[in-house]
Simulated scan of single mutants.
Amino acid sequence: MTNEEFQKIILEEIRALRGEVVELKQGQTRLEQRQTKLEEGQKHLEIGQEEIKKDLKAVIEQTVGLTEFRQEANEKLDILIEENDIIKEINGRHEVDIRRLKRRII
């Protein structure tokens, strides 16, 4: 192999290596762009997650309020049912008294 042939082979290899370096740089640029997009997407997800946490906290607070309201309503309903039973008993006694009085009149 002559010196010129050797230099030609070396030059071809250097050109090939330069092409590969350019491809690597382009790949690195694309990779960085994709990484930037991923980081931006992650920021959006984190913001969304914080909003979900706030909404969930509000739902929990509302649920607590509704649970307390339900408990109060049930307690009042129980009182009304008990008082209704008492009124029925009183009404029943009055009915008996009225009938007894009617019998005495007749």
Rank of each mutant, 00 (worst) to 15 (best):
residue 28 Q to C: 02
residue 50 E to V: 08
residue 101 L to H: 10
residue 64 V to I: 14
residue 50 E to G: 07
residue 104 R to I: 11
residue 5 E to P: 00
residue 98 I to S: 03
residue 85 D to W: 12
residue 44 H to P: 00
residue 50 E to C: 03
residue 89 E to Y: 02
residue 98 I to C: 01
residue 51 E to C: 08
residue 68 E to G: 00
residue 74 N to D: 15
residue 6 F to G: 08
residue 102 K to V: 02
residue 21 V to W: 01
residue 35 Q to E: 14
residue 50 E to L: 13
residue 57 K to H: 15
residue 43 K to V: 06
residue 90 I to Q: 10
residue 38 L to H: 11
residue 65 G to S: 10
residue 19 G to V: 01
residue 43 K to T: 07
residue 72 E to D: 08
residue 56 L to G: 04
residue 66 L to N: 14
residue 36 T to E: 14
residue 31 L to K: 02
residue 9 I to T: 11
residue 2 T to N: 09
residue 9 I to W: 03
residue 87 I to D: 11
residue 40 E to M: 07
residue 43 K to R: 13
residue 49 Q to L: 15
residue 101 L to K: 09
residue 36 T to H: 11
residue 59 V to F: 15
residue 64 V to S: 05
residue 60 I to V: 11
residue 23 E to R: 02
residue 48 G to L: 12
residue 42 Q to V: 10
residue 48 G to P: 01
residue 59 V to L: 15
residue 17 L to D: 06
residue 14 I to C: 01
residue 99 R to S: 03
residue 15 R to F: 03
residue 46 E to G: 00
residue 44 H to A: 08
residue 10 I to F: 11
residue 2 T to P: 01
residue 99 R to K: 12
residue 45 L to P: 01
residue 28 Q to E: 12
residue 63 T to E: 12
residue 94 H to Q: 09
residue 69 F to S: 13
residue 14 I to Y: 00
residue 96 V to D: 13
residue 81 I to H: 07
residue 70 R to K: 14
residue 27 G to D: 05
residue 7 Q to H: 09
residue 67 T to A: 11
residue 95 E to L: 08
residue 99 R to M: 09
residue 76 K to F: 04
residue 39 E to L: 05
residue 79 I to Q: 10
residue 26 Q to I: 01
residue 63 T to F: 14
residue 36 T to P: 00
residue 76 K to D: 05
residue 29 T to S: 14
residue 61 E to L: 12
residue 69 F to H: 15
residue 93 R to A: 07
residue 49 Q to W: 10
residue 3 N to Q: 10
residue 76 K to L: 14
residue 73 A to C: 04
residue 82 E to Q: 14
residue 86 I to T: 04
residue 21 V to G: 00
residue 40 E to G: 02
residue 80 L to P: 00
residue 80 L to E: 09
residue 68 E to K: 11
residue 43 K to H: 05
residue 106 I to Q: 07
residue 90 I to K: 07
residue 15 R to H: 08
residue 32 E to W: 00
residue 96 V to Y: 05
residue 98 I to Y: 05
residue 52 I to W: 10
residue 102 K to W: 04
residue 12 E to H: 01
residue 106 I to Y: 09
residue 36 T to L: 13
residue 75 E to D: 10
residue 37 K to Y: 04
residue 76 K to P: 01
residue 41 G to L: 15
residue 8 K to C: 02
residue 42 Q to L: 14
residue 36 T to C: 06
residue 26 Q to D: 15
residue 4 E to N: 06
residue 1 M to D: 14
residue 80 L to V: 13
residue 72 E to Q: 09
residue 51 E to A: 12
residue 3 N to V: 13
residue 97 D to W: 08
residue 60 I to W: 05
residue 100 R to Y: 08
residue 79 I to N: 13
residue 44 H to M: 05
residue 41 G to A: 13
residue 71 Q to H: 05
residue 25 K to A: 05
residue 38 L to V: 07
residue 102 K to P: 01
residue 4 E to F: 04
residue 47 I to R: 10
residue 106 I to A: 06
